[in-house]
Design a protein around this nucleic acid. Sequence first.
DNA 1: CATAGCCAACTTTTT
DNA 2: GTTGGCTATG
Length: 714
Amino acid sequence: MIDYEKSLNPAQLEAVTTTRGPVLVIAGAGSGKTRTIVYRLAYLVEQGVPPENILLLTFTRKAASQMLRRSGELLNQEMGTVSGGTFHGYSYTILKKFAPALGFPQGFSVMDAADAEDLFKGVRNELKVGQGDKSFPRSRTILSCLSKARNKEISLQSIIESEAIHLHDYLEDLKKLEEAYFLEKQKQALLDFDDLLFFLERLLMDNPEVLEYVRSVHGYVMVDEYQDTNLVQARLARLIASEQGNIMVVGDDAQSIYGFRGADVGNILDFPRTFPGARVIKLEQNYRSSQPVLSLTNCILSNMGQKYDKNLFSTRTSGAKPELITPSSDMAQAGAVLSRVEELSSRYPLHDIAVLFRAAYHAYPLEVELNKASIGYQKFGGMKFSEASHIKDVLSLMRMVQDPPEILAWKRGLGLLKGVGPKTAQRLYQAYCDFLTTADGSELKKFETKNEQFAGLMELLRRQKNLPASPSGFLTEVLEFYRPFLEEKHMDDLPRRLSGLEQLEQITSAYNHLEAFLADMVLENSDPVGMQAREDALVLSTIHSAKGLEWSAVLLIDLVEERFPSRRAMQDSDDMDEEQRLLYVACTRARDYLGLFVPQRIYQRNTGFNQRVWPSPFVREIDTSFYSKVKGQAGISPRAAENTPGDQETLPGEVSPQSSRRSQTSAVPAGGYCRHKVFGRGKVVQALPPNKYKVNFPGVGLKTISGEYLNFEE
DNA sequence: CATAGCCAACTTTTT
DNA sequence: GTTGGCTATG
């Protein structure tokens, strides 16, 4: 038995024991949100609610798995488990169950972003839209516009007018593509991520008996990170729970950071209106951060216009002030982070220290330094595991045995073979489909005799079909087949890719059914080995991926204009607000130590210069009394020391002159053309200070040449 | 029709 | 640093 009154503060207790009707919990950062949810689960179970009747939904995988894990720990395992996961994962489960009602008697497959891109490219080629037009937008650009339009539920035209005006001339073509892409998905029974949500809504709206079923199964609904839900997700929550239903949503409007994908803070602000009679409970006591850290984060909070007033207070009064560190360059910053980490690691285990950043690539210089120093680290965010090309290859090969056959998997799998391109792949796929319906395999046989690799692949597939091996057994065979292709394609970084495949083997071994495994890989529902925090590794993470987590020490790097806020956000005030919330999320991850790193120069690859950058406006807005300044170290890496024009010190508090936002145009003509006596005309790819240039000469290739041998064109 | 080689663009953030 | 797309070639 759990003593709730002892374990929880009054607000938490209220949230836990209010089990009937709609409840909105405004949970400030570090206010014990997850604890509250988990205790509520336990409470419900104690009250006699079967765990599987409780549905727990979140937006991100990480939040979902963390919560399901913690509830599993608190609940007695034999009580069974709570249903739940991400909105997308849940939708998939329900849709799979009722696929025929959706008009997919054969079932359907889910595409990840890369699959969707492949399909879209096919459609684009078919329509012959934008061919030969170099400035025609890329497939992924178009798809991201389409997805944005759907997530925000506005027309493609509005999206283009509001955030991609440079594509306006292509609007008619884009509309055609939108339509054709839609039809192609339908035809192939393929759903993209957005479809999962909209199809579930349609299923529930059109089929009262399905809605009835869902409602009866999930008598209690909880939604975490509600501020990050978009419109359709909010409607789904309402559909499943019904207006008078037992629904609790938890969120913090100050931590809404997914506006770019249609998350709507309006959902949390309007909750009391949508669910009349909703109880609103605020959790304001902060258990996470020391008072100095909290004071700084409260200062950030007061700088933004938030809707639900919060007054966060801590019981932890001691602690050191956050530090503001201003290394001279991003290289120097990597060094400074390293020495801080070394210092901190005497007090905290490595996995309790995190370096956070706005975008995954900001961590590159640091990763180099960590490797040099042999400090183990684990990176979250950025490129996903299953997006790496070798993983996609292997998964496609595995997907080829699925019934009905999936065109995308076949195209990718066959594309690996020598002598097979798009056309042949299409033909063979068609031949295989015909074979399945007419049992006439002559066409396939003909090609098998012509192409040894194809014969090998077909043999592999046939074996699996006739005598299905376990997912990991099948994977082993596929890997054996794939190995030569991998070696040819990725000779350069074979070890890294092989270790990725080993990881895949480990994930696979947890599955008994191939189909479940493949579906989970698309939705990344599995809890791969790489996702679990390693004990001995420093954590590197994008802020988005750090959401909901906490560490004793948090180091926040690259707090400079154009990086944080990102360049794009600086054009738009709504985006700027979101960037500020992002900073808030980042800083509130810290328990004891918070280090803010503001490099003064950043190496620009295209110019070869360390370019002067300005402290993030959000840092400038923080009152200097909330942190202590630490000057950057003198020890600077050689490249940082060279070529740094304009050497005045700039510390937060100073105003950046408008002109400084423009890049300081150097005398170095990178990107331009030049002439060489022997090699002729070439393009300057990169300037290598002090006076060397990497130049690409047609027919000759890349050469590195001293400036005095080159004549630069205007 | 497949492929290699070259060139240019693109790097928020997640499902 | 990577990837997609175009072009020339076989």
